[in-house]
Structure formats: structure tokens, C-alpha cells
Design a protein around this nucleic acid. Sequence first.
DNA 1: TTGTATGCGTTATCAT
DNA 2: ATGATAACGCATACAA
Lengths: 332, 332
Amino acid sequence: MNTTRGDRPPTSVDVARAAGVSQATVSYVLTDNPHARVSEETRRRVRDAAARLGYVPDAAARTLRTGRSGIVLMPLSRARVGRLAQQVFDELEEEFRTRGYTLVQYGERTLKGVAAARSWLALRPSAVLVEAARLTRPAVDLLHASGVRAVIGLSDQPSPLVPAVVFDHRALGAAAARHLVERGSRRLAAVVPREEGLDAMGRARLAGVREVVPGAARIDLAFSEEEAGRIVRAGDLPDGVFAYNDEYAMLLISALKDAGLRVPEDVAVVGADDLPICTLMRPRLTSVHFDATASPADLAGEIDGIVRGERPSVGGEVVARFEPRLVIRASA
Amino acid sequence: MNTTRGDRPPTSVDVARAAGVSQATVSYVLTDNPHARVSEETRRRVRDAAARLGYVPDAAARTLRTGRSGIVLMPLSRARVGRLAQQVFDELEEEFRTRGYTLVQYGERTLKGVAAARSWLALRPSAVLVEAARLTRPAVDLLHASGVRAVIGLSDQPSPLVPAVVFDHRALGAAAARHLVERGSRRLAAVVPREEGLDAMGRARLAGVREVVPGAARIDLAFSEEEAGRIVRAGDLPDGVFAYNDEYAMLLISALKDAGLRVPEDVAVVGADDLPICTLMRPRLTSVHFDATASPADLAGEIDGIVRGERPSVGGEVVARFEPRLVIRASA
DNA sequence: TTGTATGCGTTATCAT
DNA sequence: ATGATAACGCATACAA
């Protein structure tokens, strides 16, 4: 089968030998280098030989040579980003893969700024998608100088440093609050999860609630039945609560019902994320969903464009924005 | 700052210059090569210089040279593996990262056997964790011959080809069925999800149910309220249902309640995965949980051992086993 | 139109 | 105890 040494994967040299051309020609043909002119006949021979041998270019060699790998690095811990991103991630991974990139989730959480950038650079990624808060000007400069073409920030607002994917948590909180007020709630509260990583988003959403109802209370809550029960029994809950997300909503609602309170008559609750469980609860749960202005395919395309140098990478720009959309159900 | 060309990341040559030694010495020191004898004094100078320059070895160059990257490849789509693996993934990712590996989830689903192996080899991974069903003997041989040290199968039973992580879906179904029978159900059914990727696990779990109750019915169900309602209204449900997992259980229960049936009096339901929502439903949901015989840390350690050549990679072996544990709640 | 030659940054062999 | 040096596989400037 393999006409070469040992039994290692075939190299471009093997393909060249099999096709009766030089290694350079193989490289030209398989990378579709527009710079080089190769006859159709030769192209065919090369492609045939490559297919026959099952040739797949060595990613490491290509990276070493070009200074840039096909890796798109997402230094985020999955748990930290919530359900939404979990759904988006799979699609994004597929989009990048079909475009020849490898999306790598890299859960390291402690490093920031230049130190983080250095550790990311070990992989010579083509792009880095990371919380904007972890970036600094020197870090961004270092990344760019080191061959990273696209540095994309994830944030709840545009970033002056890099193009950003914006998750408008404030607007989400505000949308929930507006709905609660419209359906008659007088006093509001917003849940802020105690879980590390979720708390920042919780605070942003609370800020949004307070844009609408300045006096809205803050309920710090860990995801536990016991704590939810304690808070409900303390009895000072207002008549409208934005529960941070659907799971916290379900937690709160079950505690409310256990305490003999009626939902939504005594306390109205709004969740977020619009999980399937919303339609399975009785009454069904109203939820605020994040809608993206750009699909995962668009996002991957945009980043691909930046990497390929077709588009510039501009600070302050918004690559995609996630905006709240209210899904009203409780009344049903 | 950077005493070298342009502004690219410092190389070992830069470190050597800064430390006043040769590049080879840098390599020796930083890889702790036991083969080479370097004085403490020199080691210190090298490490200082490396730290000062923020030197991080280029992964591509190292891979090209050693023939093996630090990548642990998991060619699985996240959606396909269910909640369990989603939880495990984050921990596994962290474990591997602290050991110097990069866990890469690679959602490509179509390729199998040698073709799949070839595409995976582009990254020269140190280890591949993949559904055993996608492996063939030639594929495993090719991977091993190409430098992949650990090929680990994921399966519902030990694999003759490779060491396996076993998810005992049959036992899980059987445990659920046993519980239903014990609490008084006469006739049983098991839900098999229509969703592609979940159906195989569903069938394995159904087989487990039928080990206990041979005549148990099969309910094919997509995750939709409408379809669940239709099935419930058709009225031929038995008095005990294993719902495949907790989310399907919730779907089914809400349809049952809508139809005026009592749970568990008329129809008892058991879920799986033991999600937080189990304790939030009323009545609480009994669920079968997968418990691992080995923690993510153990698993990563085991694979690390194989990669480092300390342990052999043996077909038929079981690296870790996920066994069902019944969490009884409905009676509470 | 195709081939030759070079270097990317690292590891590891072999001299010194 | 340390330094020169040769690959690893690929992409590309340049020669033919």
C-alpha cells in the first residue's frame, strides 16, 4: 500500500514521488496557490496520487512554515458561558471545521493580559475569541504582532480594543423588567447567581432591570433548593421576579409553590434562555431569549474573512450582537 | 523588551542568547531531558532568561520534531453525547490541560475507519477518544503506527480493539425497569428518542428494560409537546415508563398531567441523568444516574500514562465504567 | 510550466 | 558539561 518508509502517514514527498513531480508542485496544487501555474494534467496526477495515498497535510508542519495554525482558540470554560453559548458552540465548531479551522475550547481561567496571550500563542492560533475583560492593549498588540489575525472580544458592550460579540445582558434584564411591570408587578427583584462566573452576567442583567425599575431588589441565590426555600420563607419577595435564567426560575417557582404561594398571581416570574422546560412547566414560563444578529455561519465567515485579510480587525466594531427577545407564556 | 527581530514570540534561540548558552542547552533544560547533564547554575540562568522573555515553546515546531502533538482528540459532537459527557467534558479538559495536553472536540461525524483516522492524523494527536463503533482494526493500526499512543473507545461494552470507556446503557435501563416493577408497575414501556445520535443509546437502554420485563413496549418519541400529547391521548400507555432521560421524563409527565392522568399513581415515570430539575418537579422525579468508576482526573491520568508509555494500550481493557445508580424520589 | 533550495523552531545525536 | 548540527514536512522565492 504505502510505498514509503515505515508506516507513517504519507508526506507531500511521497505524493510527489507517486505523481512523478516535485514536492513543490504538490504543494502548489494542493494549496491552490494562485501564484503558480500548473497544467491541468499535472494537477490531476497530483490529486490522484494524493487521494490514492490518503495524503493529509501535516498541520504542524504547515503551521511552522506559515506561522499560523488553523486553530481558533476560545479560552473560556464551558460552564461559565451558560446554555446559550453551549448551543452556539456546536454550530460554530462545525462552521469552522468546514472552513478548515479547528475550534479549540481552552478552559484556562486565571491568566489575563500579556501572560494569557503568551500562553495562547503556543498554539499560534489564527483567531482568539475571548472575554474582552481579559484583554489589554499590550496583549492585543502582542497577539497581532505574533500572527494572530483576528482577536475577537466577548462582552456585554463594544470593546475599544477589538471587534466584539456583544451579549446585551442589560437589555435582557430590562426586557424582563418591562414585561413584569406591564403585566402588573409593582415591586421587582432580580436573581443574581452566587456561582462564580455567572455572577457577572447576573449583575449586568440586574443593572438592566434597574434601568426600568430603579429600586429593584437584588436576590443573591446559589442553585440550591434549601437556599431558595429560605429566601421564599423570609417572605419579603416582591410581586415580580426576574430569575436570571430558566433554571433559576424553576428553582424559585418550586420554592414558591412549596410555600403555598401562587405563580404568577402572588409572584410573577420571568426566566431567560427559553429552554424547552419553559413549555413543560405549568403555568408555562415566560422567558427572555437571546437572539443573534448573526448566525454561527455568519460569525465564522466574518472571522474567516479577517483571518484571510479580506476584512480588517477594528476595535469598537460589533461582529455580532445578541439581543433579547421576549417569549411570553405565563398568561397562556 | 524583546531583544530580537520584529516582535514575534521569543524562540529558544532568543532565550539562549539572553542566557549566554547555546540553543540546545535551552532545550535540554526546559524539557528536563534526563539524557543531558547541565549544571544547576546554567539551568537557573536558562530558566531566568526564559521567564524574563516570556518564552513559550512553539507547539507546532515541537510537534513536527517529535511527531506527536499535545492534542487529545475527541471526534464527537457535543449534542450527541448527552448531558453526562457535557458535564464530564469540562473537568476532563481541565485535567488534560494541567497535564500539558489540549483536549480538542472535533464534531466531524461522517467519517469512519481508516478515512476518519487519516483526517484525525492531520493533528498528530497523542490520544484519540472516540466511539468504538467508528473504529476498525486497520484504523486502529494506522493510528498506532502513526504515533498516536492511546486510542480509547467509548462504547456500551468493552471493545476488542482498544481500551474502552464503557457506558452501560443496558444496565441503566435494567435498573430503571427493576425499580418500576418493585414499586408496582405491571406493564412497562421505554422511550427511545427519535433524535439522531440519541437513538442508539435509547435502544440500548430499552434492551436493558427488556432484560427485566421482556414484553416492555417501545415508545419512539421526538422531543416535542405535540408528539408527547398525541402518544398520551392514544391511551395505550402502560403503568410504568422509563423515559430515556430526565428531560424526556418531564416532557412525558407534562403531557400526562395535561391529559388528566396522575403521576405516579396512574403512570409511574423514571428518568435518567439526575439533573437538578428532578428535585424541582412535584412529585420529585426518580432518576437513574451514571456513576463513573473513575474520575476525570483518573481517566486523564490513565491516558497520560499510556501516552507516556508507562502503561500499555490493551484491547478489551476497561479504562472506566459508567454504572447506573438509582436515585429514588417519586415516593418522597 | 516545473524544479531547487531554503527556513520555520524544535528535539536529539554526536562531537568536543 | 555544553555546543554544532541534522532532521521533521511544508510553503514559497527564485532559477531553469
